[in-house]
Write a protein that binds this DNA or RNA. Structure first.
Lengths: 193, 193, 193, 193
DNA sequence: AATGAATGAGGATTCATTCAT
DNA sequence: GATGAATGAATCCTCATTCAT
């Protein structure tokens, strides 16, 4: 029973299905058929709405990054002071919403794909720049000239826990990872003072 | 003119070609044809020696991990004292031999594949366990009960810099990454004392 | 705002769009979507009016042939004497109305399609018969028994210049083609006398 | 039972099958599957040898043109004097080898395709130039300044009979067509003198 | 030891056509 | 009257893998 205004619904379903399949398989070796099936429609319809496979992937990636950015922003407005804001940034990545099997795995896959695809890289660069700038902004008052290095270290550490979470079996323990990152942050601040 | 004892030579050539291609492409989307061509032989021969494609990948992965393990061991025998040994472990990963475009990229790709393939995971687990055990062994005298967490943090940090290196454009700066890891190590040790 | 009596308008728009697209592409590899878009409507509506794609093509072909027949008739009523009537017939095909890029190209395409489609052939046969009969009627008083052969030759010559016009780049030169045909006609008449 | 040196055999079989299928269908709407089946092999093998569909078409076209050029050349060496040489040129196109159902139909199809495909056009241009130059060379001594126009007329006439042959049902009558072209030639020469 | 020959299976994409609104 | 929604069928092309030589 076809209805009007299906486009956004179908697109969202496809994006969700894409994240699910990519996360499940752990690579981009996912057929449009698998995605479409999971989204409950024919491959033809998937193509109708997205044109080509890489556009579906791109939309999924964009979705993940947007969700993440929104979550960071939401936490940041509530946080007072650099330390609290740094914690907000760190915790966002490891919050249950973000830090769940499929999403983490899909994230990692897209992350890797950025090596190849120009469009994927563009998206990733935006993410990386924003993360770095966020960290830097809060680290500056705490560490001064040492802030850039600390920011780099923190960013790498976050990515490191992410990749480990993606690879570990079972549900990843976000709290533990966040705790490690935060205590490293404390150590870095302590050492810098 | 076919010669005797070609097997090890052909296998090595294929492994090398695999790392090269996987590194170049940045994913496992590499055909047996590409690998065989780079290795200077027919696809049929590649199959003859490895049976199936995933065996080629596995051999390449094993090769990278073995090289890495050897390099660690070589550095460890020269190092005296926990700090020096930790530095040896860290520096190995970022040494020019290991930390070059193709290899890092291939490494990352295999790393991700571990999520899917049972055999790949087995290999990766060995690597992770060994790294963790190495770190732990040296951190214990310095940090006591805090060692496990520190080991986990360091391992994640190393992986994090690796992934960032794989994704960054141009030749990765191993020294800088090593320096960041080591100064984080110092901070952790300092904070733990 | 849907209006009454849209049918003829829509059909005409589709026919025109079909000739345009077929002429542009130079083959029948034209989708209903392209035609409908050029005609400013949805593919569903195109199907609504024509039932199936080949019916659209057929209608377009019929349109071209009808236009041509009308043009011939219009010129014939003004011409006096066999020579003048032959010239009228020849010139019609190369007149600006008929002899323009899109139309010539579409004509040729349909012409070729007659080889395959029964319906297309039926239309083409009508055209060919009429052309031949027209030519024959005027050639008879001039050439007597030699008329049938001359008619065949003239018909082939006209088609030949058509196909060349369709394939040549840029706007075809109808006057030059007509001149060649007419001087050949003169030569044939001269030779027959 | 795979043998060596199959490539030229397979390629020839595919070219022949392509001409057969294109001729049969009367358009380029021929699938690789049909061609491969007629040639007695899998589609994969067809792709293996030609890379892509249009390369198969191009090879078939090239084959037809080469055969034709060879046939012209063979007849020309035996002919003495302009008239005999003109007759040789004309008769070649309508000789049984060239002027048979499939080939004529395929020829026409490729001819039309030249409108679209750059590569096809390139081939056709060579053919047209060569035909024109051949005709011109022999017409010059007979007609002087009138030669270019006559050459154009003859070329168009040949194409015209070709297209008519392609569209007529049953086996085309090459002799009759040749006779018409030649008597037109005589008329043109007679008229020019 | 080595390879050209060959294919089955699979995947992205397109498109005519139908249907409910 | 008009269209967005939806799909099945078809088509090109790729690739891992096998086999005879």
């Amino acid at each position: 029973m076809p209805k009007l205004g299906m486009e956004p619904i179908r697109r969202a379903a496809l994006v969700k299905a894409t994240i699910g399949e990519v996360g499940r398989v752990g690579s981009l070796d996912v057929t449009v058929g698998q995605i479409a099936k999971r989204a409950g429609m024919s491959t033809a319809l998937a193509h109708h709405y997205f044109g080509a496979k890489d556009q579906i992937f791109l939309a999924a990636m964009r979705h993940i990054l947007t969700e993440y950015a929104d979550a960071v922003r939401a936490r940041l407005v509530l946080a007072r002071g650099p330390r609290a804001r740094l914690e907000a940034i760190v915790r966002t990545g490891f919050a249950p919403d973000q830090f769940q099997g499929d999403v983490v795995s899909a994230w990692l896959t897209f992350y890797v794909q950025a090596h190849t695809s120009v469009n994927a890289r563009r998206l990733m660069t935006v993410y990386q720049r924003r993360l770095r700038s966020n960290l830097l902004h809060e680290l500056r008052p705490l560490l001064g000239a040492g802030a850039p290095e600390a920011a780099e270290t923190l960013a790498a550490l976050i990515d490191g826990f992410y990749i480990r979470a993606a690879l570990g079996q079972g549900a990843p323990d976000g709290d533990a990872s966040a705790a490690r990152v935060l205590s490293t942050l404390e150590a870095l601040i302590g050492g810098g003072q």
